[in-house]
Design a binder for these strands. Structure first.
Lengths: 192, 192, 192, 192
DNA sequence: GATGAATGAGCGTTCATTCAT
DNA sequence: AATGAATGAACGCTCATTCAT
């Protein structure tokens, strides 16, 4: 367990710098310095910067996925499941602002587009699978509006991401109650 | 009238390159070449790259603002005004995908945050003023949910931006009907 | 004619460094410094280091080719023509030791092999064409030994290159007489 | 007897990589991996990369020297001895293309020049001693042309090296007969 | 003795910006 | 005013070498 030590430091350092200053503002030398390792050391753990960026994305997605499913009752009423997932997602972002900022940077880049495409087409295991199933079921049971899956996603996630950003940037403070009410508003958008 | 000619070419060239390839993929030399001017000439019109980026943002915002207000009846019923603005916005993005891609790049950067802050605080003239007034009025008249303005913005715009992106990236095709239904769903999110 | 000034300086500087220290010992920064230009300037004239290396080769080959054919009488007796070409070649090397050292470095590299192949197959215009014609004619007229063209080349050039190297490295001094006698010895090797 | 095992593997691995890809294409880590040892282990057997390169050269020279003298009859007629040595040398190269390629790389480097100087001056035991004696004797007995020893070497070896290279690179196929005839041609070059 | 993770100087290359023309 | 050649700091990455285990 001593080995991943350095890898973790590098990942953490890259996360911080990229989240705060974008890909531009995170030269490998700076990542190395903040991680407390030599510049060349990064390349023992990651083939190149692209790989580092993608693996960091994978790590975040994994953590998110896990937290999202915690306490998720697949047999709960439809609305309850929606609220659970939405709340968990928003909470994750609020509690992990660096992760959130990183994901935004990532999605706004060539990699991000490819990943998003794979997810929508279901080619990729990812944090949205639970959502995807839920939405497909909801559509089939006519609980949700008769809109394409993609649009339902946009209606549900668009506001969550925007709200998370506003909270993180300090434009607003999302407390427990406000989170709930925001997600209920999203529910109004997608429900029939 | 010959001067703004070059300025326009530079602006257009920067827009195309940044929208398509990001800030990374738009070196000043390439912007100059595509604009048909010398590399140094850019610096006669824009102090540096940051200024160019910010002014380009301003131009787009101006155009958008103008189109948004076209045919906007300040005395129409509340819901109609919301639908009008939302539709105009989404249409603008669909018809000006380069502008949309540029705005995404821009918002995802240090500048973007500052601009957004100014807008929310009302320090800045901008495309959202009509929305801001509308929402403030809606809140006061209890037509809209009793949520902070920022959250209402997120509920209304978050899905629109997401949908526009999906359309531009080819994940879905937004026709007239789908646009309308999407915005009506947004209305469901914000209305009481 | 002021433009090629810098290009020439770069070429000259690269020639000197590579001839003296090999490709390894000629980092672009050092080439630039010796040429009295900025590091980035090299890339205005040569796309990358490989291109610089190849163009430098082409320049030398061109100069050599020209000097080789100076005073070459296509209708002179066969032996005289051989001696003329051989002498001209050896003289060129002796008078342009940097060029010679460079060619050796070049031929001893991936590029060099490809170039050599093209030349032998006649796919490439080059300094050996005169030799090639001469040798083919000599073989047809049964003046030369009945050996493959490639071997005849080796018998004629191998010693010349070796002698040039020995001279340049100071192992021997090739004066006019010794040059003549060396080439006459080569003639003995190839003649029937 | 377990130690030289590793040393041999390192030597072999370095030979293969350098012969095939040049000094550039043979990083120590790759040499180590191919040799099946740790990267640091190389430094137990060789002080640094330069030493490795030089010792590898010595090994090849030793092997060559030994093979050259096999079946060499010091009392055979002069021409026969020349042909024997020449043939043995050319055969060695053809049968050990990696060694040949390595020697070419080596001679084309700062080390190479020093070694060649030592050899010519007789300061160094080496594969050419038999040749050197033979040539000095031949000069004294007036069997060979009255040319400096160095030039005689060039006339004899230059073509052999060139022919070996052409064979190894596939530009020609040297069979037994062609080898003989090539060396006979070299003999014509040096004999009086 | 053997290892291989760690290092950091050094590489080839890019690009925002300047300035002589 | 307009140019574009020139710059050099900064980038991502490699690799000979060291040293704690």
């Amino acid at each position: 367990m001593t080995k991943p030590d350095k890898r973790d430091e590098i990942i953490r350092s890259a996360l911080e710098l990229i989240a705060e200053h974008g890909f531009h503002g995170a030269p490998m030398a700076m990542v190395a310095e903040r991680a407390g390792v030599g510049a060349g050391t990064i390349y023992r753990y990651f083939e190149n910067k692209d790989v580092l960026i993608n693996e960091l994305y994978g790590e975040i997605e994994g953590k998110m996925q896990q937290l999202l499913m915690e306490g998720y009752a697949a047999d709960a009423p439809f609305r309850a499941r929606f609220l659970h997932l939405g709340t968990a997602l928003l909470r994750y972002f609020i509690e992990h602002p660096l992760d959130f900022r990183y994901l935004e940077q990532f999605h706004n880049s060539p990699y991000g587009v490819a990943v998003r495409r794979d997810k929508l087409l279901g080619n990729r295991e990812g944090g949205c699978n639970a959502f995807k199933e839920l939405f497909e079921q909801g559509t089939a049971q006519q609980v949700l509006k008769d809109l394409p899956l993609v649009i339902l996603f946009d209606l549900a996630f668009g506001p969550l991401l925007a709200a998370a950003r506003d909270h993180i940037l300090g434009f607003i403070h999302l407390d427990k109650q406000l989170i709930t009410r925001t997600i209920e508003a999203c529910w109004d958008a997608v429900r029939r």
